[in-house]
Design a protein around this nucleic acid. Structure first.
Length: 513
DNA sequence: CTGGGGACGGGGCCC
DNA sequence: TGGGCCCCGTCCCCA
């Protein structure tokens, strides 16, 4: 027994020794690893500090650049070339189409670049985005100079830009900050958007937007664009543009970002920043509400199909609703070129979701909502906005839209800034942009934005032709057709635009009846 | 040359 | 009296 006890005691001792040894080994390993870990942490901290210092050094530089860019952008924006570039990239032909919305610019005064950067990327049939062009205009133009062609394909994206995007970090110079060239941050946002296939654009863009906002600690406020639109200042826009991922601005980033990205309509609102007239501001707010109503509801459910004609973009008329074959109605007529152009811009907005006003409604912004099934609506709306015909465009580009907006036309179209004498006129006019067609023909599928046009249309069904030529007894359902017809008798050149003359309301009917 | 839709301005009516 | 609403006429444009 005694031996057994001794044996057990020895075993216990051995076990204890072994255990201690094991513990010691473990502790040693832990210590070693910990040391390494701490070393790495220390190193990382040092790197972080170094990067932070560099960042601080860069900030002033960026700020200066931003200021310079602001000035230059204004100058560039004032150049007709800006508009041309946009048009060029909006190559969709009317009636073509996928619902790629592009609303923006037709109406947008050239000097308002606000939506350019965030402009939804316009995706053409090839799936390449043209949006970047806009951006380049503001960013590259500076570097390239006035004479340099600013257009660039997505494949040509600035490597820096791509890199930044990939890393998702601000372009922090790894070299001496003082020697590192300040990188135009505006490209960031654009490039990010532009480089993606349209199918992805929207979601990615949205993601990006959200990400940015989150990063900023702000949650995108729905409809913020509307609220901001009227007050959107160039500075705000610029800050957003320039800030890119980093969004280094003194302004409320969330606000400026949301505004910019979601302001596409805002862009269209062009000139709002210059609108100090309270009446107009109210109207602008009104317009935004109208817009939202007509365009879509955030969940996509809100879209009033009955009141919105969906225009298809792409090669075939888009059908929003099999039962509602309004699509393409306007394709057959109309200035689809504008439409397309406009649409493209819109598309960017729409597809990119957060960019267009309509989109903004979608998630955090009305715009995004428009896509999806509702995208069509959104597209349509924006497309239609783009669709604003040549007249509108001419007015806008030529300053006509705003030029006459003095006291006699205080109500401005939120899309093209055209002035109207009364609210209802604007509402009706905006249907051009929104595609709203509340007047339905009971005999056919046709829809109209104006009651008078519906009434006139119904003569097609009734066969009524109240306008009769007193010379040949030919009858017409269209008053102007009678007038035009009578040129045959008078020998007046039918192609020559009749001078401003407008027959008195009774003249036609008197002649014809 | 015609048919027909889009869009806009003017004017009348009502509140 | 002024604004909103509606109707009408007109021009433009496209098919």
């Amino acid at each position: 027994m005694a031996n057994c006890v001794v044996f057990h005691t020895q075993i216990a001792s051995i076990m204890e020794v072994l255990a201690n040894a094991a513990v010691a080994d473990i502790c040693k390993l832990v210590d070693d690893d910990y040391a390494v870990f701490r070393l790495e942490i220390t190193r990382s901290q040092k790197e972080n500090r170094a990067l932070r210092r560099k960042l601080h050094l860069l900030e002033p530089k960026v700020a200066r650049e931003r200021a310079d860019r602001t000035t230059r952008e204004r100058v560039l924006a004032s150049r007709p070339s800006s508009v041309k570039i946009l048009d060029r990239n909006r190559g969709m032909a009317r009636g073509e189409g996928h619902l790629t919305g592009g609303h923006r610019r037709v109406v947008k005064p050239a000097r308002h670049n606000t939506w350019r950067d965030d402009q939804p990327i316009t995706v053409d049939e090839s799936g390449t985005s043209t949006q970047h062009v806009i951006m380049i205009e503001s960013a590259d133009a500076e570097a390239a100079g006035p004479g340099v062609k600013q257009e660039r394909s997505e494949g040509e994206d600035d490597p820096r830009h791509s890199r930044d995007i990939q890393t998702g970090a601000p372009p922090v110079a790894t070299e001496d900050p003082t020697t590192a060239p300040a990188q135009p941050m505006s490209r960031h946002s654009i490039t990010e958007v532009s480089g993606k296939p349209n199918t992805v654009l929207k979601s990615e863009t949205d993601t990006k937007t959200l990400t940015v906002l989150e990063r900023l600690g702000c949650t995108p406020a729905p409809r913020s664009e509307y609220l901001l639109r009227g007050n959107l200042s160039p500075r705000t826009v610029l800050s957003h543009q320039d800030s890119g991922d980093t969004l280094q601005t003194g302004n409320d980033l969330s606000c400026s970002y949301a505004t910019e990205t979601e302001m596409i309509p805002g862009d269209m609102l062009v000139g709002f920043d210059t609108q100090t007239n309270p009446m107009r501001e109210d109207w602008n707010r009104y317009s935004t509400s109208v817009y939202s109503e007509g365009c879509l509801d955030k969940k996509g459910a809100g879209l009033v199909e009955d009141e919105v004609t969906v225009k298809g973009e792409g090669d075939t008329p888009l059908k929003w609703n099999p039962d509602e074959t309004h699509l393409g109605e306007q394709h057959s007529q109309g200035n689809n070129s504008d439409f397309l152009d406009y649409r493209k811009s819109l598309e960017t907005n729409l597809n990119v979701a957060t960019h267009s006003p309509l989109h903004v409604f979608r998630e955090c912004d009305p715009v995004s909502m428009s896509m999806g099934p509702s995208d069509s609506h959104g597209h349509v709306l924006f497309d239609q906005v783009l669709n604003s015909n040549d007249r509108v465009r001419a007015q806008v580009q030529g300053g006509g839209a705003t030029s006459g907006n003095s006291k006699d036309k205080p109500f401005l179209c939120m899309f093209c800034n055209k002035g109207f004498s009364c609210l209802q006129k604007v509402e009706i006019h905006q249907r051009v942009h929104t595609g709203e067609k509340p007047f339905n023909c009971t005999q056919c599928h046709m829809r109209f934005a104006e009651a008078g046009n519906l009434k006139r249309h119904q003569r097609v069904h009734t066969g009524e032709k109240p306008f009769v030529c007193h010379l040949c007894r030919a009858s017409f359902s269209h008053s102007f057709n009678l007038k035009r017809h009578q040129r045959v008798h008078t020998g007046e050149n039918s192609t020559a635009a009749p001078s401003v003359r407008r027959d008195s309301p009774t003249s036609t009917s008197r002649k014809c009846t």
